[in-house]
Write a protein that binds this DNA or RNA. Structure first.
Lengths: 242, 242
DNA sequence: TGAGTTATAGTCGTTATGACCCTAACAAGT
DNA sequence: ACTTGTTAGGGTCATAACGACTATAACTCA
């Protein structure tokens, strides 16, 4: 491992390592009332791909874990803390960047809508609908597409959906998350039946007032609130050793 | 990204990047006739952890993709080509190695038993039962445990199991794979019913002669034979760009 | 010839799932 | 005050999947 290469050789041989993060949040379309998936992108202020939009990211600090670096991406970009953060994939193709050999370990995060509303666009940070995030720098189009695919796969039977919502939520809101992610209509009655039986949610004694219809009951998520869902068994945080 | 750090700073800051591979193969216990999961380990010939057993691995070459590096691990260790190769996880904890900051992108591979029988132990390469692969160097115990967990999760409804077997196989052999991975007994009749309906296997007109019971029919896998199963949608091979 | 073992087919009760219906509870308009 | 529209939340029914189990077929070995 510690080969006998000298400094200049290692300089040219060793691929650069960076951490990027796909940050998903839910926003409600004011006109239709439907939930949609959004994500923040940052404008490239250097070559290559100057001016294009790209995923938040940067080099890995010497004294931070992979997950910490991803959290830092999130804070730097949106000033938010994630409710869900998990490793997505390591991308290391030879031609990812024209200027250097670059390996990116990509994380994906979910943030709550109440937090996401606080995050404002700036000149170099802008939120996009996930479906409209195309034409990005590097291979980020493919990374976003893969992150969406993984999100769809995870929501099916994980506890991921709750991390899109606040602490208390109605079943209609939760169903909106599923519909936004899966892209199809779900029967309200069947949806209710499934959730009431399987997953770890509990009804509170409160209802949501102020709507123009029958006030829906508020529910609360009682399962693990950590980064990774229990269904997919990501190693606890960061494991030590090569 | 291209920070203004000079060469010596980058030398000390940039974490080393390595690729490791967990290689699983099936072997049949001669006494019980049951299938078991084995994997090859290599003996460390340097510090740290000199003399301990470790996963095959090494640095990432400047002109090879992540997947190519994993394939190379496999060839160098076992002289085998994988029938299945997929990225497992990137491990990057701060204290993985005492001597340096090391980030390892770990792949996992499946090889067929007919190939695995060819691979012989040498002084520095030895095959272990997966359950007995403990006390390894670095954090490799945890990596193996996680790979097994992922294997269990994938076999449930993927096409992974077939990659443990040769081109033609009996349903009992296939069931043996599932039982070895899941660690529990499966009803032969129900197992048959499930596979006949859902997955992509086809009966051949041959049977396996030579056993001491009724000769079982041979089946053939007709699905995709590539690295990643279609159910989990890993990005096609390697994607370019940071 | 019979005993033992595995292959393979079928049965039956339970459970999950999708499509559909009905009533409750509210706001807004008449 | 009453009607209407809309969503919340409870239920039914047929179908599909699943686990446990039984039965028969096909082979080897003693």
């Amino acid at each position: 491992m510690h080969s006998s290469a000298n400094v200049s050789e290692r300089q040219s041989q060793a691929p650069s390592l960076a951490i990027s993060t796909v940050i998903f949040a839910l926003r409600t379309d004011p006109s239709t009332g439907r939930s949609e998936i959004w994500l923040p992108l940052v404008r490239r202020i250097r070559q290559p791909h100057l001016g294009k939009w790209a995923l938040p990211g940067g080099p890995l600090g010497a004294r931070e874990s992979l997950q910490d670096a991803a959290s830092r991406n999130l804070r730097d970009t949106t000033a938010l803390d994630p409710t869900y953060l998990e490793q997505l994939y390591a991308f290391g193709g030879l031609d990812r960047s024209a200027t250097q050999r670059l390996v990116s370990i990509v994380y994906w995060a979910l943030v709550r809508p109440d937090q996401a509303d606080l995050a404002r666009d700036s000149e170099n940070v802008r939120w996009f609908r996930a479906a409209e995030a195309v034409g990005l720098a590097f291979d980020h189009d493919e990374i976003v597409a893969y992150a969406l695919e993984r999100l769809r796969g995870k929501i099916a039977y994980g506890s991921v959906a709750f991390h899109f919502l606040g602490e208390r939520f109605t079943l209609a809101q939760l169903r909106g998350v599923y519909e936004a992610v899966l892209g199809k209509h779900l029967d309200p009655a069947n949806f209710r039946r499934q959730l009431r039986s399987a997953t770890d949610i509990a009804a509170t004694d409160e209802v949501l007032q102020g709507g123009r219809n029958r006030p829906p009951r508020l529910y609360r998520y009682t399962g693990p609130h950590s980064g990774a869902s229990p269904t997919d068994a990501v190693p606890a945080a960061q494991a030590p050793g090569p």
